[in-house]
């Protein structure tokens, strides 16, 4: 074989082997992105009101669905190159069930030996705090608004308003409590007691989650769990947050906890789309103008839902 043929063979074989080698070295995960020898840290963004199921954007609000977040966390779970996950929280809370679904998935990651760090942005309150409390490490900015450990259910009574409009509503129901929470009549004392018991039960679940996640005594958490909010700095002093730092500090901490070196890769899940960014800005402008409620979400009448108390976005 002359040298030209040998060189051509080397070039062609080298090209094929480089691809085969990269495939072999990529690791056992399902992600086929750039191969990082030391492993990677995944970043999952939880931005907006937490809802169970699918989230979405409207002109006035942004919500993040637990299905989406759980999907990202499952992806990180099955990707062997992801050794730690940072939850970037910028949420006033939301649905109790949605928050619990996400917290449950955090526990699943930890059971698999992956470290989870919560990084709080502007707000990580209520349901978002429930999620954060499940992490191995919780970090916040000094001015972060967090806490708000509590549960709320709001039911409007529009009976008088409907009467002024000449609207009467006749309800036909199969059971005594089938129209529980109806906005067309006031709550009875029995109904109020029923709903209060539900709210208290979810509150107990919330407290238990914080006790388990943060390693605090039940008495201490109950003392703090009256719905009040804290700054990030206050939360550190109270033991609700471990340390102060931004997202990049959280990434470094996650890599350190996972035993990765300084040269670690990062994979972002669910990056914010330009449409979401745009809608969020429109929603923010509307909030600033006082056109929509401060919690950024319209509530329809007679739609009782257990919600972990949500806080207004601080800059709107």
């Amino acid at each position: 074989m002359n040298w030209k043929r040998a060189l051509a063979l080397a070039i062609v074989a080298g090209a094929v082997l480089s691809v085969v080698g990269a495939l072999a070295l990529r690791g056992g995960g399902t992600h086929y992105g750039p191969f990082i020898r030391t492993g990677r840290v995944g970043v999952v963004y939880i931005e907006g009101t937490i809802v169970s199921g699918r989230g979405g954007d409207t002109l006035t609000s942004t919500s993040v669905g637990s299905d989406e977040v759980v999907g990202y966390l499952r992806d990180a779970l099955s990707d062997s190159s992801i050794r730690a996950v940072v939850l970037r929280l910028n949420s006033p809370g939301g649905s109790a069930a949605g928050s619990q679904e996400i917290a449950g998935e955090v526990a699943r990651l930890q059971e698999a030996g992956k470290k989870v760090v919560a990084s709080m942005g502007d707000v990580a309150a209520s349901g978002a705090y429930l999620v954060a409390s499940a992490a191995d490490l919780v970090m916040a900015d000094p001015g972060t608004i967090t806490g708000s450990i509590g549960v709320i259910m709001e039911i409007s009574n529009l009976e008088a308003l409907l009467g002024k409009l000449g609207i009467s509503v006749k309800t036909i129901k199969s059971g005594e409590h089938k129209d529980l929470g109806s906005s067309t009549r006031p709550l009875t004392e029995e109904e109020q007691a029923l709903l209060q018991e539900m709210v208290d039960d979810v509150h107990r679940q919330f407290v238990a989650a914080v006790v388990e996640g943060r390693g605090l005594s039940r008495a201490r958490v109950e003392e703090l769990a009256d719905g009040r909010i804290f700054t990030g700095r206050q939360a550190v002093e109270l033991g609700l947050v471990d340390s102060l730092g931004n997202l990049h500090d959280a990434l470094d901490e996650a890599a350190r906890l996972a035993g990765l070196g300084e040269e670690y890769g990062v994979r972002e899940y669910g990056e914010v789309s330009p449409l979401s960014w745009f809608l969020e800005r429109i929603g923010g402008a509307a909030l600033a103008a006082g056109l929509v409620p401060l919690d950024g979400r319209w509530r329809g009448p007679a739609v009782p839902a257990l919600e972990l108390l949500k806080m207004p976005w601080p800059d709107r």
Binding site: V16, V19, H31, Y32, G33, P34, D75, D79
Partner: peptide, 26 residues
């Protein structure tokens, strides 16, 4: 054929995909 297979594999291996791909989709 060979260069296009190489290009396709490099595009899969060299890009941080937003979603994981299994062997079938690849």
């Amino acid at each position: 054929g060979v260069t296009s297979v190489l290009g396709a594999m490099v595009s899969v291996l060299g890009v941080d995909l937003p979603v994981p791909l299994g062997p079938g989709p690849i």
